[in-house]
Design a protein around this nucleic acid. Structure first.
Lengths: 344, 344
DNA sequence: CGACTTAATGTTAGCGCTAGCACAAAGCAT
DNA sequence: ATGCTTTGTGCTAGCGCTAACATTAAGTCG
């Protein structure tokens, strides 16, 4: 028999442990554990003794230890490109709502639209034993792709339906949405259509929207001019600037489709400031259906996307996958809605 | 001698462990651990052998186990009222920037402006062994206060300087900011001033702003009328509605100070839509200095708050506290700036 | 060249919890 | 009474990692 624990606890937090509770309640540690996690398996009387012991010593469970022992962390990770664009934070809010109801926590990463940073975050979250992860889009580094492919780890991609992540994709067709908008503009009689995109590099949503615009222009026999296809950062100011740049380069332009409401709203505000009439002189369309689209004058034609639901559905799929396994990879097309208002 | 491990691993992930790496590298587990965490203590040659073994077996560290063994999680928690208001997400972005540089991760909670939910989140984050927490404001439930008081756990409060959290407060004086804005309006000659606040219940920022407005009105000898002190939810639409409601109740009102730019912007947009001239018929002031304040017409007078820095400083304080201890509780007044533009 | 540091690696004993069984006591049919 | 389930509780052995100490092989110095 080895001689041990001669001098009590050598390391540790100093916070009370399960054993402390067990000792003051006069039961074993496992009983306390059960009283907390599966109370129906503990006699009412014992439960009460344990409860008062917990209160007495001020016990707070150590989930890190519990996670290690049970190989479950009840943690889901999410990586978004930025926290400064409300479409992503609203999606996160949807996720958090569902996760919290189901007793899961969110660990959050923001990649800054950089897939290498995304890869690094993925590795961190793997190391932290997140039980699943929500990614934005389906463009990732090769290494990340390979890692995810060989790992049997629940992954959901959002905002896009192009990838084949282990659990599924939750999104809508960015291509179709952009196509529909151009079709709408054409039906309204606009022929000289410009498109202002987000940066498309490593961003499949933006790339798909651009593809949709191009295809629609071609199908409808409308002219596509390079000077009218621009990329821009996301800000109100940049929206106004893009409008001016396009009008300077191609004065005959009669409609501009922006890949984000923020840009489109900036353009409408700037147009009004400069006495340019919307939609008579120039039509403006956006993408997202943020609140500003409804209160701006004229109200903005845009594409409504179910950002809250994107988060909710992604979270549910992932929880389902952690609890009942997964395979194949479902595709949840949550659709979009063309909302026609006064700006076109 | 006890007979054990007759049939190998009984539970576990199936992912390779430190031991697997150690075995293929022909060294002990602790050497692999050191090669990863303190490479300078391992001979170059060994380091290389270990590195290739890691690559060979595809090892990903299990931080949950590491955290338990080292009693360190390198995790910081943050609780914000909502993710749907960019001032908070920008603060979080500031936090994430600093945390990631220092090798910390963020666990995020959103309380929905409900301090009971906040309390529940605090307990969860304690249980998850977060090394510190960033809270919004200094209103918490009694139980949360007591828990935090007796726990010797690093806590930083943001957006307010009123509390005495264990590590410190990072914010500015909401009272002074509101006071200054009213003073500015008075100097501009406005005398019939209205104030639209966020809900003040359990929200010390809103309560302080209201107090500042009241005090300023009193000090400056301006009339305070109950019909002109309103609370409102946060939205563009609600801003416009508040403006109408105030003008209906008190037609002589010549200036409205909104506790958020979103509200003020909604009011300006609505005013333009209705042909109400800003600032001639009614002056509008906001709070936050969001981008829209600069591009709207007229540009908006508002209070600039250092939201990104709030997050950065809070994160740094907390990291410092986890590494070198803490005591007392510092107060970092990051200040605010009255930005006067055309709307007043 | 023996005592003494330094560098590199290994051994042991947990961190605080839970899975999997073992076991006692009680209920229930036969 | 016998066997057989059910209920409540406890014991043992880890989960995968790291702190603390132990050990060995090289330098280092007067």
């Amino acid at each position: 028999m080895t001689q041990r624990s001669q001098r009590g606890r050598r390391r540790g937090h100093g916070r009370p442990t399960l054993d402390d509770v067990a000792r003051t309640a006069g039961v074993s540690a496992i009983t306390v554990s059960r009283a907390l996690r599966t109370p129906e398996k503990v006699a009412r009387e014992t439960r009460e003794v344990v409860a008062s012991a917990i209160a007495k010593v001020g016990y707070i469970p150590n989930l890190v230890a519990g996670n290690l022992a049970s190989i479950k962390t009840r943690t889901i990770a999410a990586i978004v490109p930025t926290l400064e664009h409300s479409i992503f934070t609203e999606m996160l809010q949807g996720m958090v709502d569902v996760l919290r109801d189901e007793g899961f926590e969110l660990i959050l990463g923001s990649s800054g639209f950089d897939i290498r940073e995304e890869e690094s975050l993925i590795k961190t979250f793997l190391a932290r034993q997140a039980e699943g992860i929500v990614l934005t889009g389906s463009f990732h580094t090769d290494e990340a792709q390979q890692l995810l492919a060989r790992l049997d780890w629940p992954v959901v991609e959002t905002w896009s339906l192009l990838g084949t992540p282990s659990v599924g994709s939750v999104g809508f067709s960015n291509y179709d949405a952009a196509y529909e908008m151009v079709k709408h503009l054409a039906e309204r009689g606009y022929r000289e259509i410009a498109f202002v995109s987000a940066v498309t590099e490593a961003n499949d949503r933006a790339a798909e929207r651009l593809r949709g615009v191009r295809r629609a222009l071609a199908d409808l026999g409308l002219p596509e001019r390079a000077e009218r296809i621009r990329t821009s950062e996301f800000s109100l100011r940049a929206g106004g600037e893009s409008m001016h740049a396009i009008r300077a380069a191609c004065p005959e332009t009669d409609a501009i489709f922006f890949a984000a409401d923020t840009l489109a709203a900036g353009a409408i505000l700037e147009a009004k400031k400069c006495g340019i009439s919307v939609p008579d002189e120039i039509a403006i369309a956006g993408f997202d259906d943020l609140e500003i689209a409804t209160v701006i004058d004229p109200p903005m034609t845009t594409v409504r996307v179910p950002r809250r639901d994107l988060g909710r559905v992604a979270a549910r799929l992932l929880i389902e996958a952690t609890e009942h396994g997964f395979g194949g990879g479902v595709q949840r097309d949550l659709g979009f809605e063309l909302v026609v208002r006064g700006s076109t």
